[in-house]
Design a binder for these strands. Structure first.
Length: 355
DNA sequence: GGTAGACCTGGACGC
DNA sequence: GCGTCCAGGTCTACC
C-alpha cells in the first residue's frame, strides 16, 4: 500500500517545458537518490530540507508528447509540509529542472543550432518520433545542490558508468538521511566531512576517491574566508568563467574534464568536458580520424561556432545518439540501462549518419 | 610544459 | 568459478 501523501499547489513551468524530456536529459537522472519511473513518467527523490529529509514525487499531468508543453508540475510529499518547507522543495526543483533558465537564452541557442529547435530535421533523422522530444530542447537536468553535482562528477571520473551508478546508490544507502518510508537522501557535506575515508571506501566502493570526497566535503564546510568553497560565488552569473574554471581545477579530484563538466552544471556551456566518450563520438558519429590528441583539438574547433552554447550542441548530439540506440531516455530503467553505456557496448556501435 | 605510471572498481573474456 | 586484462580522469614525479 503506497504511503499517504499530500498534494501541494501545482508548480508552474516554462512554456516549453516537458518533464519527461527535460528531466531525462542528463545521466544524473539515473543516479540515486533520483528515481525516474518510466511507467508513470514521474520521478521520486528524497530532498534534504532544513527540517529533515522528505520524499517527493513529481509528475506533469497533461503534458503530451510533441503536442502540449508547459503543463504545471504536480508535487506529492510523503508528509505534510509547511509553507517554508514547500518553498525549499520549490527551490530544489527549480535548480534540478532549471525552471528559471531564461527562455530567450534557450532561443539564442536554437538560433545558433537549429537542430534542437521545433521539429528539427535532425530530430526526425534520429528516429525520435516516439520520444517526448517536443518543441526545442535546451534544458539539462542537474542536482538540487552544487555540492551534489560536484560529488556526482567525482564519482563519474575514471570509472565505467555502472560503477558510478553503484557508488551513488551506496553513498545514499550508507550515509544519506533515511526517511520513515525507507528512502535515502544524498549525503550532506556535513555528513561526508565527518566520515573516515577508509570507511567511505569500504561502504561505498569509491576506491581512491575516498580522501578526495572527504576533502571536498570539508571544503564545503569551511568558510570562503578560510579557503573554503562558497557555493554562492560559483552560482553567481557575474563570476567570470575563467575564474570559476581556475578555482575548480584547484579542488581535490577535479581536473580539466571534471571542471568543465561542473561548469555546464552551473549553466556555463562554453567549455567542453571532453573524455573518451567524446573520442568515440568524434570517430563514430562525426567521422573524424586521427590521434586522440588531434581529435580533442578537432572537437573543440567543431563546436566553437556554437560559442556560449557549445556544450549543449555537443551534449544533445551525444544524447540523441544514445536515444537512437536505447530508445527515448524517459523509457530507460536505471539498472538495465547501465550496462548499455559501458565502453565495450558502445564500441560495438557502427558508424552513425547524422546528415 | 609534456609524459609515464599509479590509483581502484567492475565488466569482459578465456580457461 | 577463478584469474587476467582493460577502461576510465586525476595526481604526482620526473625529464
Amino acid at each position: 500500500m503506497p504511503p499517504r501523501t499530500f498534494i501541494s499547489s501545482r508548480f508552474a513551468t516554462p512554456a516549453d517545458y516537458i518533464l519527461a524530456r527535460d528531466y531525462c536529459s542528463y545521466g544524473y537522472f539515473l543516479l540515486a537518490p533520483n528515481d525516474w519511473d518510466p511507467s508513470t513518467a514521474a520521478f521520486r527523490r528524497v530532498l534534504s530540507l532544513a527540517s529533515g529529509a522528505v520524499t517527493v514525487r513529481v509528475s506533469q499531468p497533461g503534458a503530451n508528447a510533441n503536442i502540449e508543453t508547459g503543463a504545471p508540475l504536480e508535487i506529492y510529499a510523503e508528509k505534510k509540509l509547511n509553507r517554508d518547507e514547500w518553498t525549499q522543495v520549490h527551490a530544489s526543483l527549480v535548480r534540478m529542472l532549471r525552471l528559471d533558465e531564461d527562455a530567450a537564452v534557450i532561443g539564442s541557442f536554437h538560433k545558433l543550432d537549429p537542430r534542437w529547435a521545433v521539429k528539427s530535421r535532425s530530430s526526425r533523422s534520429f528516429n525520435l518520433k516516439r520520444s517526448k522530444s517536443g518543441p526545442g530542447r535546451g534544458r539539462l537536468m542537474r542536482s538540487p545542490t552544487f555540492f551534489e553535482d560536484v560529488i556526482k562528477t567525482v564519482t563519474s571520473c575514471n570509472v565505467t558508468w555502472p560503477s558510478t551508478v553503484n557508488m551513488n546508490r551506496r553513498l545514499c544507502e550508507a550515509l544519506g538521511e533515511r526517511t520513515p518510508t525507507g528512502g535515502y537522501a544524498f549525503p550532506t557535506a556535513e555528513k561526508l566531512a565527518r566520515v573516515n575515508p577508509a570507511t567511505l571506501r569500504a561502504r561505498c566502493g569509491v576506491g581512491y576517491r575516498d580522501q578526495r570526497i572527504v576533502d571536498l566535503a570539508k571544503l564545503f564546510r569551511t568558510p570562503a574566508s578560510r579557503g573554503g568553497i562558497d557555493p554562492a560565488w560559483y552560482e553567481n552569473p557575474a563570476t567570470p568563467d575563467d575564474e570559476i574554471y581556475n578555482a575548480l581545477v584547484e579542488l581535490p579530484g577535479i581536473g580539466p574534464y571534471a571542471a568543465a563538466n561542473i561548469m555546464q552544471l552551473l549553466g556555463r556551456y562554453a567549455r567542453l568536458p571532453l573524455d573518451t566518450e567524446s573520442i568515440r563520438h568524434a570517430k563514430n558519429v562525426l567521422g573524424m580520424t586521427g590521434s586522440d590528441r588531434d581529435l580533442m583539438k578537432r572537437l573543440q574547433a567543431h563546436y566553437a561556432p556554437f560559442g556560449p552554447h557549445a556544450f549543449r550542441s555537443y551534449w544533445f548530439e551525444l544524447w540523441t545518439f544514445y536515444e537512437s540506440r536505447q530508445g527515448p531516455a524517459w523509457t530507460w530503467e536505471r539498472e538495465t540501462t547501465a550496462k548499455a553505456f559501458t565502453a565495450a557496448a558502445l564500441k560495438k556501435v557502427p558508424m552513425v549518419d547524422l546528415s
